[in-house]
C-alpha cells in the first residue's frame, strides 16, 4: 500500500522545506503536513502546492494528536540537526534532537496507521579518529567523537529508531546517513566554513572530505518517502577531496593552526557568530570521514548525480565566492617568471 498521508518534520529548514514542496506537488499523496516550530521560508510556502503547514513542536505531546487525528501513515523525520550551521545553544538543540525524536517515535509507535518512517541522520555517527577505518560501511560501529557533541545526539536518535523497529516490526524504516551537505542554497557548517576568507585548518593534518549535494539529499529523502526502501543507507557523493584541495578550489587562504590552538580559535569564531566549530567538527578536520555508498546504489537504487567535487564546485560557483588567493593567476605568474622566453610565442587570445 503506497503512502497516502505524509507528515514531515523540520520544514523550516532548507531541506525539510524543499521536501515539503516536492511532496506537496506530488498528486499521489492525499495530504502532506509539515510541522515545525517556525514556518518555512516564504519562497517555499509559495511553491508548496497541496502541502499544509502546522505550527507544532515535536517535543510537545500535541504531535501524537496530529498524527492520529490526520491519520498519518508516513512520517519523515528531517528536523535533526547534526551540525547546526551557526553557533546554537546546546540545550535547545539537544532537546529538539533527542527529546523531539523520542516524542515523535513514541507517537508513531502508538498510532496503528503509521506504516513508514524515514529518518534523516548523519554520517557523523561513525565518528572520526586515527583508529577509524578509512571508509565506513553501514555496519561499522556507531561511536560519536565526544559524548556531548551533536553527533552523539544522532547516535542516540538512531538508538530510538532501532527501538521502534523492534517494537513495531511492521513499520518500514529508512535511515539515511548523510555526509556533510553542501550546495549553493543550503546553510550548513561546511558552507559557512568555506565562505570565510581565511580558513583555519589543523597543522599537519589533511582530512578527506566527502560531500553530498543538497539536491541529491533531497532526492534520497523523496525516494524513500515515495517508495518502500527499508534499511540504513549512507548517502554521499562519489569521490573524495582533500581539505587542502578544497581550500584551493575555493580560492581560500589556508591558516594551519597547531592542534592545541584550535579550541580557542573555535571559541573566537563562535563568538563572532561565524561558524560553529564543535569538537566533532575539529575531529572531522583532523581525520575526515568517507562512507561507502554501494548499498545506496545497489539496494536503494539511487546514484548521486553530483560527485563530491562537482557538488563543491557548484557551491563555489553558486555562492559566487571570489577567490582570496587565485591559484590560476598565481601559477600563470609563476610560469611567466620561470619561462620568460616562451611567453612571447604563446598566442594571447
Amino acid at each position: 500500500m503506497p503512502s497516502n498521508i505524509v507528515l514531515v518534520t523540520g520544514v523550516s529548514g532548507e531541506l525539510g522545506g524543499k521536501l515539503l514542496a516536492r511532496l506537496g506537488n506530488n498528486p499521489d499523496f492525499e495530504r502532506v503536513i509539515g510541522v515545525d516550530t517556525s514556518p518555512p521560508p516564504k519562497r517555499i510556502i509559495a511553491r508548496m502546492g497541496n502541502a499544509e503547514f502546522v505550527r507544532a513542536d515535536i517535543r510537545n505531546p500535541l504531535i501524537a494528536k496530529i498524527i492520529s487525528a490526520a491519520k498519518v501513515d508516513t512520517v519523515v523525520h528531517a528536523s535533526t540537526t547534526a551540525h547546526p550551521p551557526g553557533p546554537a545553544r546546546r540545550t535547545p538543540v539537544k532537546e529538539m534532537n533527542v527529546i523531539g525524536t523520542m516524542r515523535l517515535l513514541a507517537a508513531c509507535q502508538r498510532s496503528p496507521l503509521v506504516r513508514k518512517l524515514v529518518v534523516k541522520s548523519t554520517a557523523a555517527v561513525y565518528g572520526a579518529s586515527a583508529r577509524s577505518p578509512a571508509v565506513f560501511t553501514e555496519d561499522s560501529p556507531l561511536m560519536a567523537v565526544s559524548p556531548k557533541g551533536f553527533a552523539s545526539d544522532a547516535v542516540e536518535m538512531e538508538g530510538y529508531v532501532r527501538g521502534l523497529q523492534r517494537r513495531r516490526p511492521d513499520i518500514t524504516v529508512t535511515v539515511a546517513r548523510f555526509t556533510s551537505m553542501i550546495g549553493p542554497e543550503v546553510d550548513t557548517v561546511t558552507t559557512r566554513y568555506f565562505a570565510m576568507p581565511v580558513v583555519p585548518t589543523v597543522l599537519g593534518y589533511d582530512a578527506r572530505m566527502q560531500l553530498v549535494h543538497s539536491s541529491d539529499a533531497l532526492s534520497v529523502l523523496e525516494l524513500a518517502t515515495v517508495r518502500e526502501k527499508p534499511g540504513v543507507f549512507n548517502v554521499g557523493g562519489d569521490g573524495v577531496l582533500a581539505l587542502s584541495q578544497a581550500v584551493r578550489l575555493a580560492g581560500r587562504a589556508e591558516l594551519p593552526l597547531p592542534m592545541p590552538a584550535l579550541p580557542s580559535v573555535s571559541r573566537l569564531l563562535r563568538g563572532a557568530n561565524l561558524v560553529d566549530f564543535s569538537r566533532d567538527q575539529l575531529k572531522l578536520l583532523n581525520f575526515g570521514r568517507v562512507v561507502d555508498t554501494n548499498l545506496l546504489k545497489r539496494e536503494f537504487g539511487y546514484a548521486p548525480r553530483w560527485s563530491t567535487r562537482e557538488a563543491f564546485e557548484d557551491y563555489v560557483q553558486g555562492r559566487a565566492l571570489r577567490p582570496v588567493i587565485d591559484g590560476r593567476s598565481l601559477s600563470a605568474l609563476l610560469r611567466k617568471v620561470a619561462l620568460p622566453s616562451t611567453n612571447e610565442h604563446v598566442p594571447s587570445q
Binding site: 578509512a134 587542502s244 584541495q245 584551493r248 590560476r328 609563476l334 610560469r335
Partner: peptide, 25 residues
Amino acid sequence: AVAKALDFVRGRLTGEYDIDEFGFD
C-alpha cells in the same frame, strides 16, 4: 622537467588533482 614542475605546481595551486577514498594522491 621545468614544464612538468610547472604543471604540478599549477595543479597544486588550483586543487586540480584527484585522490582516492583512502586519501592516496
